[in-house]
């Protein structure tokens, strides 16, 4: 139920492209005139599922991806993911769950409503996008699968198929890519299992056919091409935390006050807008503070980062 939140809005609520571009052009002209300092900061008035910013273009979202299974460069996934077989697709469900098993994707998703969500997406590398996803709420799936008492976490794994995922032929990371959420995070209505982008099936480079989207966390939490979901009472191992625990925590909540040890997280560059894409302040929990801050009450977020 979305009743606590703004209901799903439609495309009619998005700033029309021509208005957006004229606004950006006007902004650009002002900047060029050296009046940038006089502009008010572009605040984000948004307290729901639909970010008010104009989404990035399909091209931007699908040609700039971190998906190391296909290579380390942002252009690699778009170039090399085409050969990935995404049908048939099976997902193994195991752990503390009433209905474990190996599900065909269609069976797994059967009966679960697809939502349209426009989420900000903030990478730990300090760039960001706005993405119109289609997908199911993870909580709906977990309810369908039946989470058993005592479960506290949900773990996820990405497909391992080096013959179709050339990046996996090198040990760039310890495959399979692994991620995890605390159960209350997994049950949060913002947490999505995306199956589509811009009302089209999810492109392979974006994690087809099924990926996690947790908009208040750094992008690496939003694991792609999921083949395994494990409900457990122990905190799952997560790939980047295994890689470098000093730099990447389990929570990985977007937090401008907690710098990555090697770079600042205070601001971000919004992709789009070309050479002069503006840098903007990063918001706590990526702007979803009102919805999710209560999950972390009493925690020291500088230690549990």
């Amino acid at each position: 139920m979305d009743n606590k939140f703004v209901p799903d809005l439609g495309w009619a609520d998005v700033t029309p492209k021509h208005l957006f571009f004229s606004r950006r052009a006007a902004l650009g002209a002002l900047m060029a005139a050296g009046a940038g300092a006089m502009l008010p900061s572009m605040g984000v008035a948004d307290d729901g599922f639909i970010a008010t910013e104009t989404p990035n273009s399909f091209e931007e979202i699908t040609q700039y991806n971190n998906f190391y299974e296909f290579g380390l460069d942002k252009e690699d996934p778009a170039r090399l993911a085409g050969g990935l077989t995404i049908a048939p697709w099976q997902v193994q469900v195991d752990g503390m769950v009433d209905r474990p098993g190996v599900y065909e994707l269609a069976d797994l998703l059967d009966g679960l409503p697809v939502h349209n969500r426009i989420y900000r997406f903030r990478c730990v590398e300090a760039w960001s996008m706005v993405v119109p996803w289609n997908g199911i709420e993870l909580r709906a799936l977990l309810q369908k699968l039946g989470v058993q008492p005592g479960a506290r976490y949900v773990g996820f794994e990405t497909l391992v198929r080096p013959e179709e995922m050339p990046g996996q032929r090198r040990a760039a990371l310890d495959w399979p890519y692994r991620e995890g959420l605390r159960l209350d995070e997994a049950m949060h209505p913002l947490t999505l299992l995306a199956t589509g982008l811009y009302d089209a099936p999810l492109p392979r480079q974006n994690g087809a056919p099924l990926r996690l989207v947790v908009p208040w966390k750094y992008g690496f939490k939003s694991i792609k091409s999921v083949v395994r979901i494990t409900i457990t009472d122990a905190q799952p191992k997560t790939t980047w935390n295994m890689e470098n625990s000093r730099e990447y925590g389990f929570y990985a909540n977007v937090n401008p006050q907690v710098d990555h040890p090697r770079w600042s997280q205070a601001s971000e560059r919004r992709i789009g807008g070309g050479l002069f894409a503006r840098r903007q302040p990063t918001l706590p929990f990526n702007g979803y503070q009102a919805q999710v801050a209560s999950l972390y009450e009493g925690m020291d977020l500088t230690k549990e980062f």
Binding site: E59, E60, Y64, K74, R269, I271, G272, G274, L275, F276
Partner: peptide, 15 residues
Amino acid sequence: ALMTNGLGVDPAKTL
């Protein structure tokens, strides 16, 4: 490449 959008969607970073 800059003038012909050949530097991808994040031209500043590529540059």
